[in-house]
Design a binder for these strands. Structure first.
Length: 807
DNA sequence: GATCTCATAGTTTTT
DNA sequence: CTATGAGATC
């Protein structure tokens, strides 16, 4: 979402770069005199990758092999040897974070800021720059808007409804996904192959074309267009392509294994002349196939660029030998790899640790306790600080168990990669206001805010506005003005709409007159009633939302004006909140790519979870057998290789999936861990050992003895031990959650059986509160801090017995 | 037009 | 189980 009026802000990028390059050249000569010091810090493979500047190069860089170092040194080398000027280098990454990091590291190497590298950025950011320069070639104006997925889906929904298609059977989300897929493969509407004709009830292509038309009239693009349009321009306009082929004398690509077909074509076109392209990647870390990435791109590199130099970076500087061996063991199960073998000089260190638990809660509890004791040093290991520890899960819903548990025991944690700041409702609303203020013709933004906060302008009123706008061929805001003038709207709605339009006019004028944009933003939020709207909202989230709005206004300070902010935020904004002291990181395996931690926990290694059910199904049938299964295995490889010193894998025998209890089978990947590099820990709670007090050797060697069934059987033996059976006998039938029941027995003993209306109670997580409702064994409690919750009576105790509260 | 209740469907996620 | 969305009700 978001707009850019300052479209040619970089039109002088080449000139700027050129100016800077003079000094760079001077410096290069000086540096050339003394041998470049950074070269001495490289190993032979890295050095070759840095010094082989001309012709196609494929750098196969395993996890932790100093890939970013090689890449940044290569850029520095291009500059310092005077081979290329800063503006002649095209360097693309996938994330803003990677781009930022690269910029910083090049700057450090060069000992100067790198503002003169205008073409270092993400595929999308560079795509925007290129597209703004040539927008007219695809029927857009250079100040086009970039829609985010939300806007995209809403637009598609409108089209679907307009076509009288049942939106329930054919949801807009699904269509958005299909269209994304086509765009990822660089198929414009007229280029979608006939084989796809049946998509979306056979109307997919037609709707795709309608959507693209609609985008054009809105002067908007979606993310896919940023690449698709540019590829289209390059293909249809030889002169434009030739120009860029000359300009970008050296091309560098990070994470090449993640490129989709559109990005691949984009690169191949640009590199077509000189072929000075250096792609860095790791086929073993390709984990984004589900969103269009083609591992094939990297596997095919040598065919695409005959005579390419292939360099393998295999010396790992991150992990211990045990960890590397475990990772290699797992990944070796994949076929069609380019093949790398990581090695290291590092000390042997701890083996990869494996532990099974009874259920998911148990697993979370154990990890919580293990982290607690790791802080002081345990099992003969050095102490670990909380920020040295990460928990990596397959799917985000697995995080909840850990959050719950860590809240309970008060262990500081942070979730990485949750909903993005700018994806939050209140931020999107606020930005929609800014959008309408800076570009009054932005209909999507207008639709979003016209009745937010509630102004008594419902579907009917909005339909009238739409009709008025369409009849006069003007944007919605003008349509609304006409409607009001014609007295086509009555009552409260009319007055409110009048107020809104006047406000928007006023704010737009203020923005034009160069009012301070930070103050203006605050004024907009206040006068529109949006701030009040949340102040009056009594839901528990409201304070947080107001807080976010404050932060948004503060973020504006870093920009020249509202337009500049909006332009930036659509592509760049992240929500790195300032850390409040050391915290354990919780994130998905996908989010962990590129990161490293001294200690890593990998929970939930169970068939159906990891590897995911979908990937298991994929193995047995259909088109490309095992494609997704291979990707899961790469994900396991990514997970293990995040660990520097300590890697702990765990699984549970029972887990609640969508509220149902399920028997879980240990992950097939566990069988693939080489036994010599794994130490099996004893699950707690067995043999009367008590939680957290592990007795050695209880997990049988059979875990590694072969088939999965054997694993399961062996594991079952543990659980059939006398102590365990006693526990089971006490707790009831097998197959339900015995430990849970067992714990609950304790709970029952301590909990006051009955709470009455109005009683003060205490809950471990939610704190103190008063009972406001009783429903069987469930209570409704209004907590002082946490708001109103419904919960099972046995999880609260009378307030005066708070010390006894079980958990 | 707004609020409530019921039904439904649930990987991974950057730009 | 729980978040989300659509229909029904006030």
């Amino acid at each position: 979402m978001v707009r850019g009026m300052n479209s040619f802000d970089d039109s002088d990028a080449f000139e700027k770069g050129a100016a800077l390059s003079l000094s760079a050249r001077a410096r290069a000569q000086a540096a050339g005199a003394r041998a470049a010091p950074y070269l001495d810090t490289l190993n032979p493979a890295q050095r070759q990758a840095v010094e082989s500047l001309d012709g196609p190069v494929l750098m196969l860089a395993g996890a932790g092999t100093g890939k970013t170092k090689a890449l940044t040194c290569r850029i520095a080398h291009l500059l310092l040897t005077g081979t290329a000027r800063p503006n002649e280098i095209l360097a693309v990454t996938f994330t803003n974070k990677a781009a930022r990091e690269m910029k910083e590291r090049v700057a450090t190497l060069m000992n100067q800021p790198v503002e003169g590298m205008p073409w270092l950025g993400t595929f999308h950011a560079i795509g925007v720059k290129l597209l703004r320069r040539h927008a007219e070639l695809v029927g857009l104006k250079s100040n086009f808007t970039i829609l985010d997925t939300d806007d995209q889906v809403r637009l598609l929904k409108q089209i679907i409804v307009a076509e009288n298609i049942d939106e329930k059977r054919w949801p807009a989300r699904q269509l958005a996904h299909i269209i994304d897929g086509w765009k990822n493969r660089a198929w414009a509407p007229d280029a979608v192959p006939a084989a796809e004709a049946s998509a979306f009830n056979s109307r997919g292509v037609e709707l795709y074309a309608a959507y693209q038309e609609r985008l054009k009239t809105l002067n908007a693009t979606d993310f896919g267009d940023l690449l698709l349009h540019v590829v289209g321009i390059f293909q249809k306009h030889e002169d434009v392509l030739a120009q860029y082929q000359r300009w970008f004398r050296y091309i560098l690509v990070d994470e090449y294994q993640d490129t989709n077909v559109a990005q691949y074509l984009w690169l191949r076109l640009l590199a077509g002349g000189h072929k000075n392209i250096c792609c860095v990647g790791d086929d073993d870390q390709s984990i984004y196939g589900w969103r269009g990435a083609e591992v094939g791109n990297i596997l095919r590199f040598e065919k695409d660029f005959p005579g390419a130099l292939v360099i393998r970076l295999e010396q790992n500087y991150r992990s211990t030998p045990h960890i590397l061996a475990a990772a290699s063991g797992v990944i070796s199960g994949n076929k069609g790899r380019l093949g790398k073998e990581l090695w290291t000089d590092a000390q042997e260190g701890e083996k990869v640790r494996l532990i099974g638990h009874w259920d998911g809660d148990e697993e979370a509890r154990w990890i919580g306790e293990e982290i607690e004791s790791m802080q002081n040093g345990t099992r003969g290991m050095r102490p670990f600080a909380l920020n040295e520890i990460a928990i990596l899960v397959r799917a985000s819903h697995q995080m909840r168990a850990f959050e719950d548990r860590f809240l309970t025991i008060g262990l500081p944690y942070k979730v990485i990669g949750g909903p993005r700041f700018y994806e939050r409702m209140e931020i999107r609303d606020a930005m929609a206001y800014f959008r309408v203020v800076t570009s009054p013709e932005d209909d999507l933004a207008f639709e979003r805010i016209v009745n937010t906060p509630k102004r008594g302008l419902g579907d009917k009123a909005q339909a009238k506005i739409q009709a008025a706008a369409r009849a006069n061929g003007v944007p919605l805001k003008e349509g609304a003005r006409i409607l009001l003038a014609a007295k086509g709207l009555g009552g409260k709605g009319a007055a409110e709409l009048r107020l809104l339009i006047d406000g928007l006019d006023r704010w737009s004028a203020a923005a034009r007159d160069g009012a301070n944009h930070v103050e203006l933003a605050q004024v907009i939020l206040d006068e529109s009633g949006y701030t009040t709207h949340w102040q009056n909202d009594k839901t528990p989230e409201a304070p947080g939302r107001l807080e976010n709005l404050k932060e948004l206004v503060k973020a504006l300070e870093g920009f020249e004006n509202l337009q500049g902010f909006l332009e930036h935020v659509s592509l760049v904004m992240d929500n790195d909140k300032g850390d409040a002291g050391p915290q354990v990181s919780i994130m998905t395996l996908h989010a962990a790519k590129g990161l490293e931690f001294p200690a890593v926990f990998l929970p939930g290694w169970e068939d159906g979870i990891f590897p995911s059910q979908r990937s298991i199904d994929d193995q047995t049938g259909k088109v490309e057998i095992g494609r997704e299964a291979d990707e899961e295995r790469r994900l396991a490889y990514v997970g293990i290789t995040r660990a520097e010193e300590l890697c702990t894998i765990s699984f549970a025998s029972n887990r609640r999936v969508f509220g149902r209890w399920q028997d879980q089978m240990p992950s097939r990947f566990i069988d693939e861990l080489p036994e010599a590099h794994v130490e099996v820990l004893t699950p707690p709670g067995l043999y009367g050992g008590g939680y957290g007090a592990a007795a050695p050797g209880a997990m049988p060697d059979g875990v590694f003895a072969g088939s999965q069934l054997e694993t399961k059987a062996a594991e079952a033996n543990v659980y059939n031990s006398p102590g365990w059976r006693r526990m089971q006998a006490r707790a009831g039938a097998r197959g339900t959650s015995q430990p849970r029941e067992a714990r609950n027995m304790v709970i029952d003993a301590t909990a006051v059986p009955a709470h009455g209306l109005g009683d003060r109670v205490f809950h471990q997580k939610f704190g103190y509160g008063a009972v406001t409702g009783i429903e069987g064994d469930k209570l409704e409690v209004a907590f002082d801090k946490a708001g109103v919750k419904k919960l099972v009576a046995k999880f609260v105790v009378a307030a005066d017995r708070a010390d006894d509260v079980p958990f």
